[in-house]
Nucleic acid binder design. Structure first.
Length: 717
DNA sequence: GAGCACTGC
């Protein structure tokens, strides 16, 4: 770029600009050259020609490459050199932090500023609430959900030459949907130039994915299915030389070796029935035998198990002989405050070994540094949606082999490591190969609405990589029909189109629309409550009995008798009204500052979307919604209007009090209990409405409010 | 009568 400008003989001011620019750029260039050395050592570096060659001939590439191959950072950069790559490259990530940190890294490798910081930036990212995209951005890292949202706005992806879907092996719901849409788009006549698709997986088992993508081809596929009679028509929009060569529709497969340190494995000889005891013994066997440095990462199922084991490790460590170095035990789970999570990144005190007791969060989301020993209990809590009972179960289950291998790999990131599996070799052998895809385990109403909004005529027949359970599909269709997002022919309604664009599950989206109606007139209040219901818990994590009492007292002024919905409303309004120090205010009330910030971010987004969808008669939300005294009781009539909106969106989630004191769902007559985290816990009211039902030790209703029988009759005459 | 794996728009 500098060369071009110079050849034009720049004027004095341009020369000055150029000098400044060069000075600004030089540290970036120095960094780029330094990083080039390590880039060239990546296993994927020598495969650049193979990969570009494959994409010259084929529109789809399936690339398998294990941890450390460098695929997530290098492939997008390789693609920029291809002649067909005239526009942007999109690359998706399952998590926000990954999207942002990869973009940052690739910007450094290319010697370009990141995102918005400079118009010259070639690399950017886009995640919810945070976007760094410039006019010359060529590589764009985004979360899967963001790309899906972009697709609802521009269904042909006109701004992209190539879309890369990374971490496909995790099989998130949004990835399965994206693959379904992209598979068609690659061969679609709606695009002037073909879209290239790269699908990347960390596991070598990609036969199913490539067969699926192959079957989307208008070419006769190898197994002969999915061949359409409209092959010629498919390419009608193209002139002869724009049409890809007939071979171009085939899927290319490339495998790249990973780069990891070796990890030695050991199993138990016979199954154990006390996992905590087995883990405790193994921790101290490692600690007393193995030299420092080398931290221990233990995979457990949940925070209760983590806290129990933490207590016994600390008790045992207190009685060790003085020549044994001390242990530092650190819990790690998502509900833990950020500051406590950060501790795992701090170096241990000298001569001390860290033991990190973690949930699944350490399997993919958080990389714990310094780990050379992994202890794996072989189990995890897995959520599963049951369409018939309309509840989620959250039960401890055996993990899959790929999950066990992923856990093992966490020991070999910095040096050779060891992995101790607290189960037998035979138990490992009979594990499922891969964790069941999310599409088989979740409520499909949002996914089906997305399909319909994207123009899918019959969601039951839309080809997905794993066909969902027909009962779940039926449940979702009925739910969408009931919420009036689709009509009886299955076509999307104007209301459905609005709901599909909201970043919410359809039932909460419907509640927003009801609240906007003139009869309800409580849109601002409902947006506040919905924002709270969609983020992580706004309450700080409580460990001890005394802390629980303290929390109840601290939050007392915010608690409202009608239940969680109005309590959340009161809380978020009081937080928003706090003008001096919100962090201190949150801490004083034992609330999570981070969660409350997220609530305000969601609220801002929902308010903006409601305004642009003209759901509010006025042009802005009244500035004074946060003014006045937020601790004043909510007017009874307003409270009734709010809860009636929720009843309409959540008819399935109503339960009545029985003579024996338990609650039974109106539809289905199933027993539900109020979750101990609810303000209604321990109370008896004639009828409850809840946000969700999760089966753990029993069916617990969460996000609960008291409602009147009469309201139901009003809402559903 | 006493509890909440993990992401994401």
């Amino acid at each position: 770029m500098i060369k071009i400008v110079q050849s034009k003989k720049p004027s004095a001011s341009m020369a000055k600009d150029l000098k400044r620019k060069r000075e600004n750029d030089s540290p970036l260039q120095a960094k780029r050259l330094k990083l080039m050395v390590s880039r060239k050592e990546l296993p994927i570096w020598s495969r650049k020609d193979d990969i570009l060659g494959a994409l010259e001939k084929h529109n789809i590439l399936v690339l398998s490459g294990e941890t450390g191959s460098g695929k997530s950072t290098q492939i997008p950069q390789f693609l920029l050199d291809a002649s067909w790559c005239t526009k942007c490259v999109a690359i998706t990530q399952p998590r926000r932090v990954a999207a942002i940190s990869l973009a940052r890294r690739v910007a450094e490798e290319m010697g370009t500023p990141l995102g918005k910081s400079s118009p010259a930036s070639k690399v950017g990212y886009s995640v919810r609430f945070d976007e760094a995209i410039g006019p010359s951005t060529r590589i764009k890292y985004l979360t899967e959900g963001m790309l899906l949202q972009e697709m609802l706005r521009d269904s042909s992806f006109g701004q992209y030459s190539c879309v890369i879907i990374d971490e496909v092996h995790e099989r998130n719901l949004n990835v399965d949907l994206l693959l379904g849409f992209l598979r068609e788009l690659v061969y679609s006549k709606r695009r002037k130039q073909p879209l290239k698709l790269v699908v990347m997986s960390a596991t070598a088992d990609v036969v199913g994915i490539s067969r699926y993508l192959q079957a989307g081809s208008p070419e006769p596929s190898s197994n002969g299915d999915q061949t359409t009679e409209n092959d010629e028509q498919e390419w009608n929009g193209f002139s002869e030389n724009e049409r890809p060569a007939r071979t171009a529709s085939r899927v290319a497969l490339v495998h790249v070796e990973g780069r990891q340190y070796p990890v030695t494995l050991s199993y138990l000889d016979k199954p154990c029935d006390d996992m905590a005891q087995a883990a405790l013994e193994r921790i101290f066997l490692i600690h007393c035998k193995e030299p420092l440095p080398g931290d221990i990462l233990v995979f457990l199922t949940g925070q209760d198990k983590i806290q129990q084991l933490k207590a016994s490790v600390e008790a045992f460590a207190a009685n060790l002989p003085p020549k044994i170095p001390p242990l530092q035990v650190l819990p790690l789970f998502a509900a833990l405050p950020q500051s406590a999570q950060q501790q795992i990144f701090q170096p241990a005190p000298p001569r001390t070994r860290k033991v990190i007791l973690a949930t699944n969060i350490a399997e993919t989301s958080v990389t714990v540094p310094g780990v050379r020993f992994v202890i794996d209990c072989g189990k995890a809590k897995i959520k599963h949606f049951h369409p018939k009972l309309n509840l989620d179960s959250l039960l401890i289950q055996a993990i899959s082999r790929s999950s066990a291998d992923q856990r093992k790999g966490r020991a070999g990131r910095e040096a050779p490591g060891q992995c101790y599996r607290l189960y037998t070799q035979n138990s490992y052998n009979i594990l499922e190969q891969a964790t069941s895809p999310e599409i088989l385990r979740c409520d499909l109403s949002a996914a089906v609405l997305t399909m319909i909004a994207r123009g899918v005529k019959d969601p039951f027949r839309f080809p997905l990589l794993t066909p969902p359970n027909p009962k779940s599909m039926m449940k979702a269709m009925l739910q969408l029909l009931r919420l009036e997002t689709i009509d009886s022919s299955g076509a999307i309604t104007p209301v459905g189109r609005k709901i599909a664009r909201l970043p919410l599950p359809p039932n909460l989206g419907a509640v927003i629309l009801y609240a906007a109606s003139e009869a309800s007139s409580c849109l601002a209040e409902v947006i506040d409550i919905v924002s709270c219901l969609t983020v992580e818990s706004i309450y700080q994590h409580i460990e001890t009995e005394s802390a629980r009492e303290e929390a109840l007292a601290a939050r007392g002024t915010l608690t409202r008798r009608s239940g969680d919905h109005v309590t959340l409303l009161t809380t978020i309004r009081a937080y928003a009204a706090e003008s001096t120090d919100r962090k201190a205010w949150a801490d004083a009330h034992l609330l999570s500052h981070r969660a409350l910030q997220n609530v305000l971010a969601v609220r801002k987004q929902l308010r903006a979307q409601c305004l642009s969808a003209k759901l509010l008669s006025g042009k802005t939300f009244p500035e004074d919604t946060d003014a006045g005294d937020p601790l004043q009781p909510v007017d009874e009539d307003l409270e009734a209007r709010i809860l009636k909106c929720f009843i309409r969106g959540f008819v399935d989630n109503v339960a009545k009090l029985c003579p024996n004191g338990s609650y039974k769902t109106l539809l289905g007559n199933e027993i539900v209990a109020i979750h101990p985290g609810s303000v209604l816990f321990g109370r008896k009211v004639e009828m409850i409405l809840y946000n969700e039902l999760v089966f753990t030790s029993k069916a617990y209703a969460r996000g609960v409010s008291a409602v009147r029988v009469g309201w139901l009759e009003e809402v559903w005459p």
